[in-house]
Simulated assay, not measured.
Amino acid sequence: MSPSKDDSTTHFGYQTVKKEEKAGKVAEVFHSVAAKYDLMNDLMSMGIHRLWKRFTITLSGVRRGQQVLDIAGGTGDLARVFAREVGATGRVVLADINDSMLKVGRDKLIDGGYTLVEYVQANAECLPFPDNTFDIITIAFGLRNVTDKDAALRSMYRVLKPNGRLLILEFSKPIFDPLAKVYDAYSFSVLPAMGQLVTQDADSYRYLAESIRMHPDQQTLKQMMENAGFYQCDYHNLTGGIVALHRGYK
Score class of each variant (00 low, 15 high):
H11M: 05
K222G: 08
D184V: 01
G61Y: 00
S45Y: 03
P178L: 14
M225Y: 00
L238A: 10
Q196H: 06
K18Y: 08
A124P: 01
A152T: 06
A83W: 01
R106V: 11
P130C: 09
Y119I: 02
P216S: 12
G74P: 08
M194R: 11
D42Y: 05
Y207G: 12
Q121D: 03
G76A: 00
P3N: 09
G24E: 04
A193D: 11
L167D: 02
W52K: 05
E28D: 14
K53H: 05
D177K: 09
G73L: 04
L127A: 05
T10V: 04
P3G: 13
N145C: 06
Q219S: 11
I110Y: 12
M46I: 13
A140P: 02
G24D: 07
A151W: 00
H215K: 00
H236R: 15
G61N: 11
D148W: 07
A83H: 03
A193C: 15
D99A: 12
W52E: 03
L127Y: 02
C126P: 00
Q67I: 12
Q67Y: 14
I242V: 15
H49K: 01
S4I: 13
D203A: 15
A140L: 05
D131T: 14
E20D: 15
F134V: 03
V17R: 01
G142Y: 03
R144K: 07
Y14R: 09
E125I: 02
E85H: 05
D184L: 04
G47W: 11
E226R: 05
N41Q: 02
T115A: 00
D7Q: 02
Y231M: 12
Y37N: 13
G73Q: 06
H11F: 09
Y249N: 04
K36M: 07
D6K: 15
D135N: 13
G65A: 15
G47E: 10
R54S: 05
R64M: 12
V104M: 11
R63T: 04
S32R: 13
S45L: 04
G164N: 02
Q66K: 09
D201R: 10
M224K: 12
E85A: 10
D217P: 01
T16R: 01
A202M: 10
E170W: 14
P130M: 06
Y14K: 10
P3Q: 11
L169T: 13
R91W: 08
V62L: 12
A35P: 09
V159F: 09
F176M: 14
A34G: 12
D131C: 14
H49F: 00
N163K: 10
K5T: 13
M224A: 07
A88N: 07
R80M: 04
D131P: 15
Y235A: 07
P130A: 10
G240C: 07
